[in-house]
Amino acid sequence: MKILVCISHVPDTTSKIAFTDNNTKFDTSGVQFVIGPYDDYALARAVELKASHGASVTVLNVGEASTEPTIRKALAIGADEAIRVNAFPSDSHFVASQIAEVAKQGSYDLILMGRESIDFNGGMVHGMVAEMLGMPSVSPVMRLDIEGDLAKMSREIEGGHEEVEVKLPFVAGCQEPIAEWKIPNMRGIMSARTKPLNVLEPVEVGEFSVVENYELPPAKGEVRMVDADNVEELVRLLKEEAKVL
């Protein structure tokens, strides 16, 4: 079984978000980049399937050279090889087109990624890739088991979950609790240095969206503290001041 895991390279969840160049560029100063947390779940499940089903795991990132430390981390966690498509991931259409192209070349049985990236939060890439490849897509997936050529999954819906079955190959957008995040060990880190990381040039894609500029939300006002012995006052404030009751 060949598994392709698509990872995004995103600011750590504790990052302070700021912009430069007249609000047209993300300010990377002091920002630590990580594998997208949802993609990290997908990777963790792929590594588990590698152990249980003897699969091979390829990680794929669409990004510029600065993403390579993030890709090496994925190799350290347990992927066998990596591909970087050398381009800035400008929008979901562009990224999906690059992934679909790599997927066509590699004929993977399973294409996993996070349900969404935590920078642009579109949550659209998995469905786009699947449609481009004419494959089924399932997202957000909370459980994934493979039995022969059949995948059994649990997909989260509002207020519950749905059990889904599909034959390989297909595309899944993953989320917890599909697997536990894996921390690379020393041996993993050492071996990641010599695992293959192939760099491909992007295919051309038409323009679907162009970023004009970024904005930050308005600053939050001061918190108003209410005495613990006076919850009636809180109720009054919620009704009369905040007008939410």
């Binding site: 323009e207 969206s209 970023v211 004009e212 500029n213 904005e215 930050l216 939300p217």
Partner: peptide, 9 residues
């Protein structure tokens, strides 16, 4: 934590 203005083409 932020917003973006995008032009759809």
């Amino acid at each position: 934590k932020a917003f973006v203005n995008v032009d759809l083409k």
